[in-house]
Nucleic acid binder design. Structure first.
Length: 665
RNA sequence: GCGGGCGUAGCUCAAUGGUAGAGUUCCAGUCUUCCAAACUGGCCACGCGGGUUCGAUUCCCGUCGCCCGCUCCA
């Protein structure tokens, strides 16, 4: 029942975004381009504030995270190592009749009788031509791939014409035969069509389906005559569409990577990809950052930037766009075996309280760090005004995990367009994924680039020497098993089990010498999705009766002051009094170095408040005649109006900047 | 990509095979006082392309975009 309202709400938000200059459609004057969006003046400020807040929280306020800004286009090998070129290319098969697509590996097996048609003829009623075609088909059975051999057919028709019309001259026969061949070529459509019918269904329905299929393909208004119709029993085949029964087309890669060419020549050799995520650059530059930042594991590398995916269906306003921005952290940690060697044991994640604090993290394994980052991220969202109750923390089930992940938590936000569960609760859409990716990524890049990605850990080497032999053996064995599992899973054909075993042993021996490939926890958030969540969360309708008692709906964007595009509006009560305007401009100039200020002197004061409410400006400052000293005790004071409560307080201009800064921090 | 619906000022909604209209927003002005006040004046539209027609915003075709389903994810 709430369904239509939900869409209404989303439409109102979209409309406000455009009206007030938060978000516009990209290239709108040319009709727009699907899946691309621009941020207007208010949107650009909002987005900057959000990214700044993230950067401050993740990088500036910590000792153990540093930043990186990498290019969007990188060496194409990166995307082979990461698996994107392959895994982003699901094999899809298409039903040629309904154009519905299915994943090639997820077709339900079908049984029944398959009817195979070879093509269709439309409108030809020249006996010689048709007879020639029949003969031709008998001699060269048409298949899905064969085309009509025009020369052979032409000769056949010539012979038949000669038989039936002996009186014609040779040149007349040649012309006539050529003409008929042309007509036949034009009016015949050779294309295999196969449909699977459940046992017991009459063969006519197969024929009818074929006629409809060809009639659409040939663009003819009436049903054509079909060629072929042979039937065969089929058992448990995955080649037919479960709904239509039509034989599926060949599996085709369905690639979500956006491509370009580097250099002026567009050839296969210089294909490059626009990054589908910012993370891979962090892995690729891991060694450089490690060596130049004076960081030691555990530490993180953060990056904010654009990413691109050729989405099948961009939907839900900016939620799924083809060009979008990410805020990603790769937090590198020691493998659990190293933690155990150094600290004696690994703190079980369950023992950490609900808000782990990083006072002593030396005994934290990947589960503890994972839990820690999930909590950190939710606290961040709370700090910019999104209430915890609007989130769903979704722990992916083992069968949903990506091949590289040990655990992934999706932080879902309950958008108005989210689907509802059986109880009618919004299920939420993913804002951020926090994956424990083991040492997969660094290992992949080590293998693909041939450059070592391991680190040397002095603490580990020292600690290892003090372990008893049993402990050494246990840890060695566990590390060895993990490495072997990874190497087996990603093995190339030339990597035999013996080779893999040897490599895994070397890795485990390395651990004993203080060397390992760091594991990683990856909190990866979508900026544009977060902006959308903030817009949805801020959108509030306030119903107030106007002077004439008529109910009026005002929209207030209740952004957290920390991220609001404009922090304060400055208004002279009246525009036509130069002394008020002058004073208001002084206040504006006083505040401007500290905060984003919006100065507005147009229209009635109530209207200006309302305008700022829609823009989400948390505070308004109004300069009146008392400010100028009409009541001497109020000289140099202004009205400070709060957006959400509409409450007004009298404040000294001298106190204004400090007071507001306090509130927007 | 497929199927269904939609497309007229920034917004809400009219009318019409022959000059496209209102409210609101916006802009300018009048106003000594705080929540879209009043008054005066002003700007702005038939998504794009093609066809039928003397003439198309209207009829037809195509295209683009938006919304809803199928698919996917940060």
């Amino acid at each position: 029942m709430a369904e239509p309202k939900v869409n209404e709400l989303m439409e109102k938000i979209v409309s406000l975004c455009k009206r007030r200059g938060f978000i516009y459609q990209s290239s709108e004057i040319y009709g727009g381009i699907n899946g691309f969006w621009d941020y207007g003046p208010l949107g650009a400020e909002l987005k900057r504030n959000v990214k700044d807040a993230w950067w401050r929280t993740m990088v500036h306020h910590r000792d153990d995270v540093v930043g990186l800004e990498a290019t969007i286009i990188m060496h194409p090998q990166i995307w082979r190592a990461s698996g994107h070129v392959d895994t982003f290319a699901d094999m899809m098969r298409e039903c040629p009749m309904t154009k519905k697509r299915v994943r090639a590996d997820q077709v339900e097996p079908q049984s029944g009788i398959a009817y195979t048609f070879l093509g269709a003829i439309y409108n030809v009623n020249m006996s010689a031509a048709l007879e020639a075609l029949d003969e031709y088909v008998n001699e060269y059975p048409l298949t899905s791939k064969s085309a009509l051999n025009k020369t052979v057919l032409n000769h056949r028709i010539y012979d038949l014409l000669k038989r039936d019309f002996p009186e014609l001259r040779r040149d007349e026969l040649v012309t006539e035969a050529a003409c008929l061949t042309d007509v036949l070529q034009r009016e015949i459509h050779i294309e295999a069509f196969e449909i699977l019918l459940p046992r017991g269904k009459p063969p006519e329905s197969a024929q009818l389906a074929a006629q409809h299929y060809y009639s659409v393909r040939m663009g003819t208004p009436t049903l054509p005559k079909v060629i072929g119709g042979a039937s065969a029993k089929v058992e448990a085949s995955t080649d037919y569409h479960p709904e239509s029964g039509v034989r599926l087309g060949p599996p085709r890669p369905f690639n979500l990577m956006l491509q370009t060419w580097v250099g002026p020549i567009q050839s296969d050799e210089n294909v490059a990809y626009l990054r589908p995520e910012t993370a891979q650059a962090i892995f690729a530059q891991f060694k450089n950052v490690l060596e130049t930042s004076r960081q030691k594991v555990p530490f993180g590398i953060a990056q904010v930037g654009k990413a691109f995916r050729n989405e099948v269906t961009p939907r839900n306003f900016t939620f799924r766009s083809r060009e979008f921005e990410q805020m990603e952290l790769e937090f590198f940690i020691k493998p659990d075996e190293a933690v155990e060697a150094i600290s004696g044991s690994v703190t079980p994640a369950a023992e950490l309280d609900s808000r782990p604090s990083p006072l002593d993290t030396s005994s934290w394994g990947w589960e503890a760090w994972h839990k820690y980052w999930v909590e950190q991220r939710i606290q961040f969202y709370e700090s910019i005004g999104l209430p915890r109750k609007d989130f769903v923390e979704y722990w992916q089930k083992p069968d949903e995990l990506a091949h590289y992940a040990r655990a992934t938590v999706d932080i879902l936000y309950k958008f108005p367009f989210s689907k509802r569960d059986e109880k009618g609760e919004l299920m939420g859409e993913e804002l951020e994924g926090i994956a424990a990716r083991s040492d997969f990524d660094l290992s992949q890049h080590a293998r693909f680039s041939g450059k070592p990605m391991g680190v040397f850990d002095e603490d580990l080497r020292t600690a290892w020497g003090k372990l008893d032999d049993a402990k050494k053996q246990t840890l060695w064995q566990r590390y060895y098993e993990n490495r072997k599992r990874y190497l087996t899973k990603t093995a190339r054909p030339d990597e035999t089990p013996e080779k893999i075993e040897k490599a895994a042993k070397e890795d485990a021996d390395g651990l004993a010498k203080g060397q390992y490939i760091p594991h990683v926890i990856e909190p990866s958030a979508g900026v544009d999705r977060l902006i959308l969540a903030l817009l949805c969360n801020a959108y509030t309708e306030v119903r107030t009766p106007d002077d004439k008692g008529k109910a009026e709906t005002r929209v207030v964007m209740k952004f957290h002051p920390r991220i609001a595009p404009n922090k304060v509006g400055v208004f002279p009560l009246l525009k036509n009094k130069p002394e008020l305007v002058k004073k208001a401009q002084e206040v504006r100039d006083l505040l401007r170095p500290h905060l984003t200020v919006f100065y507005d002197d147009a229209g009635a004061i109530g209207r200006r408040y309302a305008r700022q409410d829609e823009a989400g400006t948390p505070f308004g400052v109004t300069i009146d005649f008392d400010t100028l000293g009409e009541k001497p005790e109020l000289l140099d004071t202004v009205t400070l109006r709060e957006r959400d409560t509409m409450q007004q307080t009298r404040v000294r201009i001298a106190d204004l900047a400090a007071m507001l800064l306090e509130k927007v921090r």
